[in-house]
Computed example of a mutant assay.
Amino acid sequence: MTKTFQLEDLDCANCAAKMQEAILKLDGVMDAQVNFLTQKMTITAEDAAFDRIMKQVVKACRRIEPDCTILM
């Protein structure tokens, strides 16, 4: 399953790259793209575990960029 999410308050391209790197390391994630310019994040992950994976994605992103919000 692939879903795209709008990001709010992502402040720098370096943080976006760090978020993408952290998400790609999560178990069950097949692909991830975090685009600073468009403020969007696209996640491709296993259908059955998508909700669990998204909780981990939110945690990873908060650790890197605490002010960034993933609009779901």
Rank of each mutant, 00 (worst) to 15 (best):
L26D: 05
A48M: 10
N14Q: 10
N35W: 11
K25Q: 13
D31A: 14
Q20M: 07
R62C: 08
L10V: 04
F5P: 05
Q56A: 12
E46G: 09
A60L: 03
I70Q: 01
T69A: 14
A60T: 04
V57P: 01
T42L: 07
C61M: 15
C61E: 05
V57N: 01
A32C: 15
R52V: 12
T4M: 07
D67C: 06
E8P: 01
K55H: 10
V34C: 06
R52F: 09
D67W: 11
R62A: 12
D47T: 13
M30A: 13
A45C: 15
L71Q: 13
L71E: 11
K18R: 15
Q33R: 13
Q33S: 14
D27I: 03
I43R: 00
I70G: 01
E8D: 14
V29E: 06
K3V: 04
T38R: 11
K55T: 09
M1H: 11
K18Q: 11
K59W: 00
T42R: 15
F5A: 07
E65G: 02
C68W: 00
R52I: 09
T38E: 09
I64Q: 03
K18Y: 06
I43Y: 02
L26Y: 12
C68P: 02
M72G: 11
T2C: 08
D11A: 12
D27W: 02
K55M: 11
R62Q: 15
A45H: 04
I43K: 00
V34D: 02
L71A: 08
R52Y: 08
N35I: 10
Q56E: 15
T42E: 10
L37A: 15
A22P: 00
I43N: 02
T2I: 12
D31E: 15
K18C: 04
D11V: 07
Q56V: 04
D67E: 14
F36K: 05
